[in-house]
Design a protein around this nucleic acid. Structure first.
Lengths: 99, 99
DNA sequence: TAAATAGTTCAATACTATTTGAACTATCGA
DNA sequence: TCGATAGTTCAAATAGTATTGAACTATTTA
């Protein structure tokens, strides 16, 4: 695996984003990323197997909420603030503000 | 059935709200309510059986997104703007603005 | 009181999501 | 190159959600 799929700004869907956010574990991941900035998958402090975490990262990535940057043997996760702000202004700000 | 359960402001949960919103049909219902104001269940213009619609109304009501007021043989649905604004300021505004 | 109206509930089915552990890929360091 | 590290993918199990039609409740109107 070299490149990971990330939806373009035009491909973002409101219901897919809300659906991805509507899970307590994924919301916790977003909260951690909002606090810590870019981090690796392992830095999420969530008590789940790594394959279950990988599943949630995939849902977040494919919905457009996060960017996954591959660097060596690690993947760095970050919230796609600018893209989300452009497509759905105010939405992510409101969610994060209410975490 | 005389009284319907509606969660109090303190009982509202962000992930339950986002989960309720993260479904295209329920988002369409919210859109219709945002445009039309209070309406009956039958006024949703959604091509689903009435039992399926009833299910979605229940999810929206139990998550705290809508209020259901019984009046005679009809139920009038409306968005709980004020309660949501108090508990999660900016959230619903952002969603509705991006519908 | 009988029929119509508005919606809920139930049981069954189908579909979708979550979780786990094992096997896998890719990269880095010794 | 060997082993460790970081994470993905797969198959299988489980759990949860959505949909339908039929039966039901409550209310209104004739």
């Amino acid at each position: 695996m070299r490149e990971l799929f990330h939806p373009s700004i035009e491909q973002l869907s409101l219901s897919a984003l809300l659906n991805a956010l509507g899970d307590p574990i994924r919301l916790q991941i977003i909260k951690n990323l909002a606090i810590s900035g870019e981090t690796t998958c392992a830095c999420c402090n969530i008590d789940l197997t790594k394959s279950a975490l990988s599943h949630h990262f995939k849902v977040l990535r494919e919905s457009g909420l996060i960017n996954v940057r591959i660097d060596g043997k690690q993947r760095f996760l970050s919230i796609r603030y600018d893209d989300l702000k452009e497509r759905f202004p105010g939405l992510l700000e409101a969610v994060i503000h209410n975490l």
